[in-house]
């Protein structure tokens, strides 16, 4: 359903990605593993449309979307450092994508409650973003990315920066959640063990 074909990205003199290709089937969870600096996050940004590749194309359901603006792709991205909107409550963060789709107030409220339950944050709706712990912030970021039901969810080192115990617990939660929602996902990580827990298939880059 998602195909990345022969992608090349250069930043000035440096070639970050060269002829990178990858395919994801519907509902599949794929992990991209490799050392830092190998272009994993760059690939995610190309798929999300935040970065225009110098060559190659991104194909979604048979359509070439390489030139489509980010906001028209419906591809979700969970950022490494969450990037929650600091001027909004937990609810408003999760509701953001739904508001962009002009959904009704009641539909949004229902979906937000559903997602808060899904990520195990019942009753956190009115919290301020800066009052969340590291693990809670990750859960909110995941809920926000899932809310508009993206065709593909991209996860950029989603569990980095957590202590070991919390990390392992969240990895299991995340794996279950992606299966339960049937989400097609592309996960970037430098942790092979984490990849094995969450993903159906692992692709190693930079060897």
């Amino acid at each position: 359903m998602l195909a990345v074909v022969d992608i090349t990205v250069r930043f000035g003199e440096i070639t970050v990605l060269e002829g990178m290709s990858l395919e994801l089937a519907g509902g599949e969870v794929v992990a991209l593993v490799g050392p830092s600096g190998v272009g994993k996050s760059t690939l995610l940004r190309v798929v999300a449309g935040l970065l225009r590749p110098d060559a190659g194309s991104v194909v979604l359901d048979g359509k070439d979307i390489t030139a489509l603006p980010t906001h028209q792709r419906n591809i979700g991205l969970m950022f490494q450092n969450e990037q929650l909107f600091p001027h909004m409550s937990v609810t408003d963060n999760i509701a953001f994508g739904l508001r962009m789709q002009h959904q009704s107030r009641t539909a949004i409220a229902g979906r937000v409650t559903e997602l808060l339950q899904l990520v195990g944050l019942d009753g956190f709706g009115e919290r301020d973003i800066d009052r969340l712990s590291g693990g809670e912030a990750k859960r909110v970021a995941l809920a926000r990315a899932l809310a508009p039901k993206p065709v593909v969810l991209l996860l950029d080192e989603p569990l980095t920066g957590l202590d070991r115990e919390l990390h392992d617990r969240l990895a299991i939660d995340l794996a279950a959640l992606l299966r339960a929602t049937g989400t097609t996902a592309l996960l970037v990580t430098h942790d092979a063990e984490e990849a094995a827990v969450i993903a159906d298939r692992t692709v190693t880059m930079g060897t």
Binding site: L50, G76, L77, Q83, F96, G97, A145
Partner: peptide
């Protein structure tokens, strides 16, 4: 202003004006 914050909004379907 973190660049990724606006990128996050765009991945959630917000147009540049939004």
């Amino acid at each position: 202003l973190p660049t990724d914050l606006t990128a996050a909004a765009r991945t959630l379907g917000a147009s540049p004006a939004q």
